[in-house]
Design a binder for these strands. Structure first.
Length: 1048
RNA sequence: GCCGAAGUGGCGGAACUGGCAGACGCGCUGGACUCAAAAUCCAGUGAUAGCAAUAUCGUGUGGGUUCGAGUCCCACCUUCGGCACCA
């Protein structure tokens, strides 16, 4: 009684493929190639979760499909094996990370093989392999040996003309004044220009993990991406990679890629390009305000006018004079609206600009700001804070004195670390100005619609609500207002009246609009917020009346001619913090030179290629040092120290590389993983790259994908790879959620069910009466959620309610799988119960690949039953031995059978090409349903069908293929093709509509013309009834689709 | 707040460039087979009214374009993901 038995079939074919090396692929330029890649898994101790096989099955289907269509398919798998979890495990158990890693890799590999993926396992690699580490270090040295020349025009091997190239450091022009200072100065200058450089800056230090983290690895609420530990700011010397040099190309070259627009948008937002201008403000000399000898304190003696005329001649300098504040703005058109300036607390000019009277307050504020972590800064974001320095700068466009403040809402790491504040047209400046009582000068006229929507005459006085429409109270409020506002009482009263009419929903007359515009010019505080959009310039001297865009261009050009400003581009993206303080990562191939006292001189040198790889020293103690001192600093001395051929004492770099390093280039190594002479053979690189299809989770949108693109571009510039982008097509699989759950609220005291409508109420621990959340003190408690069985609930309208008590609403949704929720599905369990083919097929059948979708065990069961039906379609399940069903016969198919087959071939082929696996499976189900009812099932038709099924359920397909009498694997059988002529039916059914509603259907020969169809339609009773007494105004016939009669 | 994705039966979802809404699967109901059960097979299954043929309503909400809208346009609501003082 051989029923469909996945436990028997699947290991059999897995062994067959392994023994016959079925999926081994060779470099063969004579064949068309296809490179299909899964995102590099980190082999965690938990093994696979069901999210992994989703993407892996999708790529496997594409690979198997394309092999059958004659492509030479590269489909490798390997391990992103360095990283924190193995080391955290070592701290807990003392097990060496290498041991843990190898064990986890074994688990992952066993699970992947159990799922029947057609990887070429001979290409397997792990980032921890010494031979792999060697080339990771070699690529790092390429970065170390490269500087970015932004003005270098060149044509790449892809034929594209570019300006800007990563060039060898030896080609870096050394300025004469640097050269004249000697060898050390030259080396320092080179080091400062390398793509890999050491930099001291505030970094994200995570004490719990004992390492610093990149910006990308810290979440919005200031926690570590891995482990959710707190992160603090510390000033440390760290290795940085100059990814910002490539920001422009990382944006530009994203455009032609076949990636989803949303992922492209994510990357673009992360890079965050903005175009604006840098503008210089001369600091008003403190002395000049007291006495007329401004030479004191070493500040240049120039007055504003003299300074400007010098600038007109000299032009805009690369670095401004020491008494000049350089700001970056995207809105140079608002220069006339600057009412104060802000320096970041860390700005170097703060010291010189602060007056003695403000010194103490400024020092205190800087002290506080330096202690704040990013988390604190966001927590305090609601309340803007800052301190006046006592200093002033001169607005270059109108000569006005502008007070200079410091405030932590200005970041030292963005732009120039200083801003010109225009509270009328910037939300943040508006809040700050309101908090500090600074003037607001409007310089852009908003459109009337904005004025109407935002008018709030009494807003600044917070009295509108208490006034209401009461004339007496209104008069009093107006008295208050007028005494503190510059506008006249009559005007003000009429403004109030306009606002009242607007609030009452009356139409705004032209006169009213004129008044509103007037009031905006005089008192922008009478409107709810800053106007940050484009409009027309007002109060802007010679520029008044210009539209914003035109103004920006013009004033930027004017400032440039005067040497006071320059167009500038900024990026939100920061350079990549590349060092970590942990053990389980690639060592840097870098030596620090030591002086005669054993102290570092600050000079570094690269490990020579011949000495690569630098292996990790053997260590047993993995406890973090508790300080930012790297773990490797505890390494044995023979690893740590050496003496160079020239006698210089050397100490190794003790930081290690982050986990991303290995995953930045693994896709290259897969093409040539055994090469010991080069990281990849050029011919193989040219043949296999770029990756044609890359599938993985969206969590890598800005980390891995940005870093890998950056490394690739550096290798491209240095001539080591020939395509500018590594991943031609990217698809992000959606998340798989747990099974749908029903949850209700229970009263904390009485245990009664409560409606989730009341979820925002909380209950006193002593009273059954709920109180609104806003009045909560600690004695109150929230109701708790409790699971409810699906049989206890039903749908009522849009909501789910208890069957017993429909007034109680319950929550119905799926949650992310997590250990704590206990809704994790283990692939091992599913394979054991249903088999790998069922798991693969179910994951593809759940819905579109890119959608987030909930798991359903009942759905797996349905798929398993389908595979059982396929089995019985071919095999006799009542015989004692495995043999064909009696209905399967070596006979030619009927025309009807042939048409069903060819329709299925077409549908499945098209769907695979569009990665719509769920509908492909539906079509195969339809085929199976149809043929199950046939008493005679031609062998040839079933053979073709088995081929269609094989990319999805390869084990079952191989087994049936063998049963149908074939002796070789189907992996390289030609994919079935369809004959379009066979798809056409002899007759067609045409729906007949009256006024767009289907009222009947006619069946006519496939070549029937409109007249025939109309005649047939009129012959239908229902149609005739609908037409009686009415006139046909118009008839629309869509050939072969439908007939629509418009009647009156 | 900004950017992105998505809202279709009891559930997952289908519907290519506007043309029969709900394919396919799950669930449910009934039936066949069986001593019985499992397994399997057959039929039905958006809502409302009706014995019925049929009619009306129906793709988050409100408008619009069109002979015809799940699909196109405008405004809004909800959910999910990302970013968040980036000047």
């Amino acid at each position: 009684m051989p029923r469909y038995d996945a436990q028997r079939i699947e290991p059999k074919w897995q062994q067959f493929w392994e023994k016959n090396q079925t999926f081994r692929v060779e470099f063969d330029p004579s064949k068309p190639k296809l490179y299909v890649l899964d995102m590099f898994p980190y082999p965690s101790g938990d093994g696979l979760h069901v999210g992994h096989p989703e993407g892996y099955t999708a790529t496997d289907i594409v690979c198997r499909f394309n092999r059958m269509r004659g492509k030479n398919v590269l489909h490798p798998m390997g391990w992103d094996a360095f990283g924190l979890p193995a080391e955290q495990h070592a701290i807990k158990t003392g097990t060496h990370p290498r041991v843990t890693t190898l064990k986890n890799i074994d688990t992952f590999k066993r699970q992947l093989k159990m799922l029947g993926f057609s990887y070429d396992w001979s290409r397997e690699l792990a980032t921890t392999d010494p031979e792999y580490v060697r080339w990771t270090q070699w690529i790092f040295l390429q970065l170390f040996d490269t500087w970015y020349d932004p003005n270098y025009p060149w044509t790449g091997p892809d034929g594209e003309r570019r300006v800007g190239k990563g060039r060898p450091i030896a080609e870096l022009p050394i300025p004469a004044d640097v050269r004249s200072q000697g060898d050390i100065a030259v080396r320092n200058y080179q080091d400062a220009n390398r793509l890999a450089y050491i930099h001291e800056a505030p970094v994200n230090w995570c004490p719990a993990l004992g390492t610093v983290l990149a910006n990308e690895e810290v979440t919005a609420d200031g926690k570590s991406d891995r482990g959710n530990h707190p992160v603090e700011r510390r000033r440390l010397k760290q290795w940085m990679l100059r990814i910002t040099a490539y920001a422009e190309r990382l944006i530009d070259e994203l455009e032609p890629l076949n990636w989803s627009e949303s992922i492209k948008a994510l990357q673009k937002n992360w890079i965050g390009k903005s175009v604006g201008a840098e503008v210089d403000f001369l600091v008003e000399s403190q002395e000049s305000r007291v006495k007329s000898q401004p030479e004191a304190q070493g500040l240049p003696s120039l007055g504003s006018d003299e300074w400007k005329s010098v600038r007109t001649k000299s032009g805009f300098p690369t670095t401004p004079e020491p008494n000049v504040i350089r700001v970056y703005t995207t809105r140079p058109d608002t220069l006339f609206g600057v009412t104060y300036m802000v320096l970041a607390p860390e700005h170097p000019l703060v010291d010189t600009i602060t007056t003695p009277a403000q010194r103490a307050a400024v020092d205190e504020y800087r002290q506080k700001a330096s202690l704040k972590s990013d988390l604190d800064r966001t927590d305090l974001a609601k309340e803007k804070s800052g301190v006046f320095t006592g200093g002033y700068a001169i607005n270059p466009v109108n000569g006005e004195r502008v007070p200079v403040w410091i405030a932590d809402y200005v970041l030292i790491s963005y732009g120039t670390g200083a801003i010109m504040a225009v509270p009328a047209h910037d939300e943040r400046d508006w809040e700050f100005a309101n908090a500090m009582g600074i003037n607001v000068t409007p310089v852009v006229a908003p459109p009337d619609a904005w004025l109407i929507a935002n008018v709030d005459m009494l807003g600044p006085f917070h009295s509108w609500h208490s006034v209401g429409d009461d004339p007496g109270k209104l008069a009093n409020a107006v008295k208050d207002v007028v005494s503190s506002c510059e506008i006249m009482q009559d005007d003000f009263l009429s403004y109030i009246e306009i606002e009242r009419r607007i609030l009452h929903g009356d139409r705004v007359s032209e006169d009213d609009a004129v008044q509103l515009r007037q009031s905006y010019r005089i008192e922008p505080g009478c409107f709810k917020k800053a106007f940050g959009e484009y409009g027309t310039a007002i109060n802007s001297g010679p520029y008044t009346g210009l539209p914003t865009a035109e103004f920006k261009t013009k004033i930027t050009a004017d400032l440039a001619t005067q040497g006071l400003g320059k167009q500038a581009v900024n990026y939100r993206l920061r350079d990549w913090l590349f060092s970590r303080q942990r053990y389980w990562g690639e060592p840097f191939p870098i030596w620090h030179e030591l002086d005669s006292h054993g102290e570092p001189t600050g000079m570094v040198r690269a490990v020579t290629d011949a000495d690569l790889p630098v292996r990790l020293p053997e260590m047993e103690d993995f406890q973090p040092t508790g300080t930012p001192e790297p773990l490797l600093s505890k390494a044995p001395a023979d690893w740590l120290y050496a003496t160079a051929a020239d006698g210089t004492k050397l100490k190794r770099e003790t930081n290690s590389m982050p986990q991303w390093a290995g995953s930045c280039w693994y896709y290259l190594r897969f093409c040539d993983n055994k090469n010991s002479d080069r990281f990849i053979d050029p011919a193989k690189e040219k043949y296999w790259l770029p990756v044609d299809l890359y599938i993985g989770g969206a969590e890598h949108a800005v980390l891995h994908l940005l870093y890998a693109r950056f490394w690739h571009k550096v290798l491209f510039d240095r001539g080591h790879v020939t395509c500018p982008e590594p991943f031609a097509r990217l698809v992000n699989q959606g998340m798989i959620l747990g099974e749908m759950e029903f949850n209700g609220l229970k009263h904390p005291l009485t245990d009664e069910w409560l409606s989730i409508k009341d979820k925002d109420l909380k209950w006193s621990t002593t009273s059954v009466v709920p109180v609104p959340t806003v009045e909560i003190a600690s004695v109150y408690t929230a109701a708790r959620y409790a699971p409810i069985d699906a049989s206890q609930v039903e749908k009522s309208g849009d909501t789910w309610v208890l069957k017993d008590n429909p007034s109680i609403q319950v929550d119905a949704r799926s949650y992310k799988m997590s250990k704590s929720r206990g809704n994790v599905i283990n692939p091992d369990t599913v394979v054991k119960e249903y088999g790998a083919d069922s798991l693969r097929l179910y994951e593809m059948f759940m819905g579109p690949l890119e959608a987030t979708k909930p798991w359903s065990m009942a759905g797996v069961d349905g798929i398993f039953r389908f595979l059982g039906r396929v089995w019985r379609l071919v095999a006799d399940d009542r015989a004692d031995d495995i043999r064909l069903a009696d209905a399967v016969q070596d006979v030619p198919p009927t025309p009807g059978q042939l048409r069903v087959l060819h329709k299925t071939i077409k549908a499945v082929t098209d769907d695979i090409e569009r990665l719509q696996f769920n509908t492909a499976i539906s079509r195969m189900m339809e085929f199976t349903n149809e043929f199950t009812s046939h008493d005679v099932r031609p062998k040839s038709v079933l053979s073709s069908f088995v081929l269609l099924l094989s990319p999805f359920a390869p084990h079952l397909a191989e087994e049936l293929w063998q049963l149908l009498g074939h002796t070789t694997t189907l992996a390289y059988e030609p994919w079935p093709t369809y004959d379009p002529a066979l798809l056409v039916e002899a007759e067609m059914e045409i729906p007949v509509q009256i006024n767009g509603k289907v009222r009947g259907k006619v069946t006519v020969p496939k070549d029937a013309d409109q007249a025939t169809i109309e005649a047939a339609a009129n012959a239908i009773d229902a149609i005739a009834q609908q037409l009686s007494g009415k006139t046909v105004v118009k008839v629309v016939y869509v050939a072969g689709k439908l007939l629509n009669m418009v009647v009156k």
